[in-house]
Structure formats: structure tokens, C-alpha cells
Simulated assay, not measured.
Amino acid sequence: MPIDRRNLLTASLALPFASAAAQAAWTRPAGLVPDASVALWPAGRLTPPPGLVEQIVQRSDDPNASDRMLQGVSRPRLDIFRPTKPNGAAVILAPGGGYRYVVIDKEGYELARWLKERGVTVYVLFYRLPGDGWTNGSDIPLTDAQRAMRIVRSRARLDGIDPARIAFGGFSAGGQVATSLLTRFDASVYAPVDAADALSARPDAVAAIYPVVSMDPAIAHAVSREKLIGANPDAAREKLYSPERNVRADQPPLWLLHAEDDSVVKVANSVRLREATRGVGAPCEAHFFERGEHGFGLMKTAGLPVAIWPDLLWNWLGSHGII
């Protein structure tokens, strides 16, 4: 895939705090460029913790397969990918990163491009991280997810989308963001700041791909758990931040994907959430594959049955009236 060198100089992430070394270290395949970027919060609303600085880190040595991550998120935002012919559907994507950083390419821009080519307007969410020193840090990812839903709904006419056809998808720790929103979309985790906050934060569908879900130490992803709720949470705190223990009959339709050989986030996270969701009579479709490991996204599925997953997701979104 050819490299568009001009994009090196006009990085659309709008990251003024990225280090010079990070800026020099990465190249981006043509096509992985957002059409716009919007802040989640009004100017002056957020005061970043002392010393918090955003920076991009490139994790790939392959110039044709960029794998960047964003650390120290201080300006939560939505990067927008607009299709040439919008079909009215919208998807918000929350990439993973173990609540230590937010992946940019493989769980964000790559799927955004795939969906954009099919007429979906896509918003890649760069959410704040619970271990970065924000007040009420455990609720910070959910706060940004709720706000993202409301901002997207408020922009429906501007972006040419249907405010009743907005799905929210998350990968790995971003799957914990997604499944927290699934069950706590109406939790009061921040004070309203403008008219957008009068809108519902309930997604019309939720997809969670190899998600971190539970805070039960028997199956939890240890790093995500400690970042989110600390090293020694009490039982009530562990329960509150475990979506499988907070399922409700009125939650959105749920789609789950996990590889059974995942050595990073145990498949039991998805299994428990599926069983709990079915237990309350809420709709859920789950796909478990023998192989795939963790973090496969779109680029690491070659030769494996799990490679079909984007089409399975597409068909499910259609079955629920999103596309």
C-alpha cells in the first residue's frame, strides 16, 4: 500500500502535544485520515491533571501497517470519517489499550475506513484514561462515552445521520467502555454542560470485540482492573464496574466477538456477559472462534476463520436496523 507522505506534515489527529520523536517515527497508509475532529467538551471545561501530556507512540516497524497509540489523553475527542454517500447509520468506536493508552489505527482508523466505504459515518473516540489523575477517574471513560453519544446525536442533522441509528463499538479495554455504556448509559456520572446533555446516551446497539468486561480477579484483565478500580477495591466497587453484574432488560442489543485462545483477556469475560444478558431477556448475539488470540482487529486475521467477523457484524447491524 503506498504511503502518502503529505499526511506526515498534516496529521489530522490534531495533537499539538505529540513529541517530535513520535511525530517523526510514524507514517500512515493513504486513506487513514479523518475528515474532521470535534472536542467532546467545551473549551475550558476540562483541566488536565498536572504533568499530563499527550503523545503518539508508534509500535510498528512496518511503514505500511501503522500501529500507533495515544498516551496521556488530555483532549478527549471524536475523529470523524464521512462516507461519500452516507446511509444514515453512525458507529462510535472506542479502541483498546488496557486503560493505559488508546490505540489509533488497528482498532480505530482501520475499521472506520472499512465502515466508511460502506456508507457509515464513523466517530473514533479518544477517551480519557482512569489512571491519569482525573477526578473520579473510574468514571472518566464512561463519562466520555456518554458525552460522545450525546454529541453525535446533537450533530445528527449536520452529519447526515439518523439519531436513532447510532451503534457503539469497543475493543479490549474499549470493550469495557462499551459494555459499561451498555448497562450504565443513564448513570449520573457528570453534570450537564450544554443542550447536548439533554439527549439520551443510550446506544441503539453495542458491539464488544474481545472485550475486557469483568472486574472479578478470577477472569479480569489485571492491568485494566487496577487502572480502573485500583489494586484493592471493595466488593461494591468491583460489582459496580463489572457490566455482567449490572445487566438490565432495557439495555441495547449486544454483539460479542472473542477468540477462545485469547491469552490476554479471557474469553470468560464475553461468556459471562452473554449469559447474564440472556438471563434478563435482552438481545445478544455472540461469536466465539477457536483461534485469533488478542488484538486481531482487521489486520491479523489472515488465514483464520475469524477473518469473517466484519461481515458478521455488518449483517447483525442490519438485522437491528442500524444500516
Score class of each variant (00 low, 15 high):
Gln146Arg: 12
Ala18Ser: 14
Arg6Gln: 03
Arg68Val: 08
Met1Leu: 11
Ala25Phe: 10
Ser319Leu: 09
Met149Leu: 13
Arg45Ala: 15
Trp41Cys: 13
Val212Leu: 05
Leu181Arg: 05
Glu110Ile: 06
Leu158Gly: 09
Asp67Thr: 05
Ala24Val: 09
Ile323Phe: 08
Ile219Phe: 06
Lys106Phe: 02
Gly175Pro: 13
Ser172Tyr: 08
Ala18Ile: 06
Pro95Phe: 02
Val177Gly: 09
Tyr101Ser: 03
Gly97Thr: 01
Leu304Asn: 05
Val264Glu: 04
Asp105Pro: 09
Pro305His: 10
Leu312Arg: 13
Arg165Pro: 07
His258Trp: 02
His221Phe: 05
Ser200Lys: 12
Ala36Met: 11
Trp26Val: 11
Leu298His: 03
Ser263Tyr: 12
Ala21Leu: 15
Leu228Pro: 00
Ser60Arg: 13
Gly119Glu: 02
Gln71Gly: 11
Ala307Thr: 06
Arg291Leu: 05
Leu111Gln: 00
Ser242Gln: 00
Pro2Cys: 10
Ala18Lys: 09
Trp134Ile: 04
Ile166Glu: 00
Ile140Gln: 01
Ala21Thr: 10
Pro63Phe: 08
Tyr210Thr: 04
Ser188Ile: 11
Pro243Leu: 04
Arg278Gln: 08
Thr143Gly: 04
Met69Pro: 04
Asp144Lys: 10
Phe168Asn: 08
Arg128Thr: 01
Ala22Gly: 15
